[in-house]
Amino acid sequence: MHIKKMRLGWLRQAYIKDWLIQAGVIVGLLLVLTYLVSMLSSNLQAKNIVSGFDFLTKPASFGIGEGVYDFEAGSPYWQAFAAGLANTLRVALLAIVLSAVLGLALGFGRLSKNILLRGLCISYVEIFRNIPLLLQFLAWYFLLTTLLPAEAWQFLGHCYLSKSGLSFPIPIGLSLTWDFPSRNPFNIAGGARLTPEFLTVLFGLTLYTAAYLAENIRAGLESVPHGQVEAGAALGLTHQQILRHILFPQALRVIIPPATNQFSGLIKSSSLAITVGYPDLVSIANTSLILTGHAAECIFLIIITYLLLSLLLSVIMNWLNRKFQIVER
C-alpha cells in the first residue's frame, strides 16, 4: 500500500494541490463577500436606510432639461434612468461617428507628403492626448458659455444660436409640418435644441478620441507594405481605387481592435458629462442617489449598464473584425 502511494505520489499530489488552492480561493472569496455584504446590510439597518429597488417605480422629484423625449418631474425614477441612458447613447454615438471621421482625416494627414500638414496633425495629436479630458470639457464649456451671444443670433432662416444653445426646426412626427423655434422675451422656445452642455460633451469626446484614433489609423495605414501600393499603381489603378481596394481593407484589420478600445473608452468617458451639467446616465444616477439615499442600488445600475454597453460594443466590433479578417482558403 505504501509503495502504491509512492508510485502515484507526485501526480496525485499536484492534482490535489491545484484543487485545494482553488477551493481555498473560492472559500476565501466567499468569506470576504459574506463579510462585506453582512457589514453593508448591518450598517444600512443600523442607520435605518431602506434598501431595495422599489424606489425605481416612485416618482422622481427632478426634471431633465434635455433629451430625446421630455422627462418631467413626477415620472418614475426608472424613466429618469432611461432618459439618462438615452442621453448617454445620443452623445456617445454621435461622438463615435464624428471622431472616426476626424481621426481618419488626421491619420491621413500624418502621412501627407506636406511637412506643414504633417506637423499640424502631429501637434494636434500631441496636444489633445496629453491634457486630461475633464480639463478639456471644462475649458470647452467655459468657452461656449462665454463666447456664445446672449442675444440670439439668427441664421439660415429659422436657426438660432445663443447662450441657450443651437435651436433649429424639426418635423413634427411624420407629417410635413415643422416645429419652428421662435424668440421669447429672453431666450428661444420651440424647435429642437442642442444645449451648450451637449455640445461641450460632443466636442470634448470627439476631439479627444480623434487624437488617439489618428495614431491607430496611421499605424494601420503604415502596416500595409508600400510595395502593394506601387503594384496597384503599376496595374493602372487610380489613387482612389488603391485606397479603397488595397490600402483600406488591409489597414482596417490592424485598426479595428485598438479602435474598439478607443470607442469603449469614449463611452466610459461620457460619464464626465456630470462635470458640465449634461444629464447623462451617471449624472441622473448621482442625483437619484442623493435624493433617495439608495447609493448601492444606483451605483449598481451604473455598473450594470456600462457592462452591457461594453459587451454590446465588443459584439459589434467583433462582427466588424470578422468581416474584414483575412479569409484563409
Partner: peptide
C-alpha cells in the same frame, strides 16, 4: 422651464454668471 443642473455649487454659479441661465 428648462433646468440646467450641476452637481456642485461652484459650477452652477459659474454657469449663471456666464449668462447660461436666466
Amino acid at each position: 422651464f428648462r433646468p440646467v443642473v450641476f452637481e456642485n455649487f461652484e459650477a452652477s454659479l459659474k454657469a449663471f454668471f456666464s449668462g447660461r441661465c436666466q
